[in-house]
Design a protein around this nucleic acid. Structure first.
Length: 558
RNA sequence: ACCCCAGUAGUCUAAUGGCAGGACUUCUGACUCUGAAUCAGACAAUGUAGGUUCGAAUCCUACCUGGGGCGCCA
């Protein structure tokens, strides 16, 4: 086995596909991406998309992007464009774009065939009657009184349904299978329902009947020559029906294989719940950086590489699972650590005056852009008498093992000088508002000629060169690992601190950063420029924080 | 209560009848001009009970637990 083959991901789906090729069940691989254009893509979709895309790609096959637009009351073209944009961002490639609605005519012909074979009938029962007669999980259903209509009558009624002669809800076309079947999906499932309005986003007013998912999806798969129809486990109970239609129609039979959908800790994944977060203004929109939507994650600064790495590391299996968002965050750090430029920014500023530094002197300090990538080079950072440091980097009364700045202690200002805290200025309420310090001129650049060491290096920004910026600090949207427990529960465990807006200072090298560009703010985390940014008012989003061992130690100590 | 599916460390996932392995998390330590990164190490798992077998996470049975299923949603 070659190294490439050893590294190739393997899972039960890829094995099944390989076996189908080996046994000759199929001689090629073609998969489909079946989004419904009624919402934005989230991280859960990425898993499904990548399975479809990679299974095709790894087998020299094709991927068709097919929008599942069988319900005009829910779907809009706006989402078609957004979905394609997000999918392209992930690097997914497809051979063509199709729509379930492209096949409405052919599908109708197929329905007529089933009617002619006595395998489908028009039911005049009300929706309530259909529901009542379906039976329950433990009880068989009852046959509809219209179940044994003649083929001629069914054909006539179906034609008139199609022509719009009947009002919404008055009739449906049903497959004639078995009202006593233990699988409720097989109890004469609906194939077509009547919908007059609104017009369909692609076919306009042409159709008054629309196919149900079960009637449309598998047949479309067959029409497109899809070999493997990969979907989430909730369709497992639909597979017998999927196969029944194809069998009765005697057409090409794709194979449906189900896998477990992605769930993630500290977030919700259902479209309905995400919509509520938007509608109830819990978040600022579908692209709020706290959302698990692709649009949110993109705005947050996540890279496609990181998202894909996460999906790869999570794997594919059939059992229900909830992946840890910490793994996603780790993938993001891993990618950004290698590729992002380092900058200094102070997000909770504390003023430091270096008393023995000349009043008007400005020195340019050399700073490394990315220690992980020497080719990223260096830059100059201006230094002067008054600087800002992080409030966290000073304690008037240091706890044990704290070795940042405190009265009498010496630390290194990164790329600059050693400084020692000499005095603390407080306001009337006792809050520390200013620090005084002295520097050692012989430590320029950060090293002491006498070889003495400091235990801490802190970041800083020269006050007179600082650009003021808005910093949006994001945290998990929920404070419960699984907010989906319970129906309404998810709105009751919102993290009140999921967004904190700060005003901070950044070094000059950051003032002209383009929206979307990413940086590591040293010792803080990874940040990216928000699209709301303006040159006079830059805005940075926290993508993900750096691991913070000290914060962890301190928290444990309490 | 009926049907389908699944149970491997806190989490995700390998092992396809033959040494239970990897990743994340957590914890130690080394190194460090980022308390980051990196490096070294540690903790930690086959739901239960039977059966088949020289040998079972894997096959069989029962039970338990979890997920899905009674839309004219997808």
């Amino acid at each position: 086995m070659s190294p490439e083959e050893l590294n190739k991901p393997s899972d039960f789906i890829r094995e099944a596909v390989a076996e189908d090729l080996r046994t000759g069940r199929f001689h090629y691989v073609r998969t489909r991406l079946p989004p419904e254009p009624n919402g934005y893509l989230h991280i859960g979709h990425v898993k499904a998309f990548m399975i479809d895309y990679l299974v095709a790609k790894e087998n020299n096959g094709e991927l068709i992007l097919r929008f599942d637009d069988t319900n005009p009351t829910k779907e809009e073209t706006e989402f078609v464009d957004a979905i394609m944009d997000d999918a392209r961002w992930l690097g997914i490639e497809w051979v063509r774009v199709t729509y379930a609605s492209d096949y409405f005519d052919l599908l109708y012909d197929w329905a007529v065939q089933l009617v002619k074979k006595g395998l489908a009938y028009v039911d005049d029962q009300t929706p309530e009657e259909v529901s009542a007669n379906r039976g329950t999980l433990t009880q068989a259903g009852k046959n509809s009184p219209y179940r044994n209509r003649s083929v001629e009558e069914n054909l006539d009624l179906l034609e008139r349904m199609k022509n719009g002669e009947f009002p919404d809800g008055s009739r449906i076309l049903r497959a004639k299978i078995d009202m006593a079947h233990p699988n409720i999906n097989m109890r004469d499932p609906a194939m077509y329902r009547i919908i007059h309005n609104p017009p369909h986003h692609r076919t306009g007013d042409k159709w008054k009947i629309y196919p149900m998912y079960d009637w449309s999806h598998g047949q479309n798969d067959s029409m497109e020559g899809i070999t493997h129809s990969l979907c989430s486990r909730e369709y497992e109970n639909h597979r017998p029906l999927y196969e029944w239609f194809l069998e009765q129609l005697d057409v090409f039979k794709p194979r449906q294989i189900e896998f477990a959908r992605l769930n993630m800790t500290y977030t919700v994944m259902s479209k309905r719940k995400l919509r509520r977060l938007v509608e109830e203004k819990v978040v600022r929109g579908w692209d709020d950086p706290r959302m698990p939507t692709l649009r949110g994650m993109r705005r947050r600064g996540y890279t496609a590489e990181a998202v894909l790495d996460f999906i790869r590391r999570v794997g594919v299996a059939k059992n229900y699972s909830v992946s840890d968002v910490a793994l996603l965050e780790e993938c993001v750090r891993d990618d950004l650590n290698k590729h992002s430029l380092r900058r200094m920014a102070v997000i909770r500023p504390l003023k430091v005056v270096i008393d023995n530094y000349p009043d008007d002197l400005v020195e340019e300090m050399d700073a490394v852009n990315n220690p992980e990538d020497p080719s990223a080079g260096t830059r100059k950072v201006p230094f002067s008498k008054v600087i800002y440091i992080e409030q966290d980097d000073f304690r008037e009364a240091p706890p044990p093992k704290y070795h940042r700045l405190f009265p009498g202690n010496e630390v290194r200002l990164r790329y600059a000088y050693f400084i020692k805290c000499t005095d603390v200025v407080q306001d009337a309420e006792g809050h520390v508002i200013e620090i005084h310090a002295t520097y050692d001129p012989s430590t320029k650049g950060g090293d002491a000629p006498d070889g003495r060491k400091v235990k801490s290096t802190i970041h800083w920004v020269s006050a007179r060169h600082a650009q003021e910026v808005e910093v949006r600090m994001y945290d998990r949207l929920f404070n419960k690992e699984n907010p989906e427990e319970g129906e309404e529960g998810f709105l009751n465990c919102l993290n009140p601190n999921s967004l904190e807006i700060l005003s901070g200072f950044v070094e000059p090298a950051l003032t002209s950063a383009e929206p979307g560009s990413r940086f590591q703010f040293e010792r803080l985390g990874y940040f990216c420029v928000d699209p709301d940014s303006a040159p006079e008012k830059p805005i940075f989003n926290l993508t993900v924080n750096l691991k913070d061992t000290w914060a962890k130690m301190e928290k444990k100590g309490k």
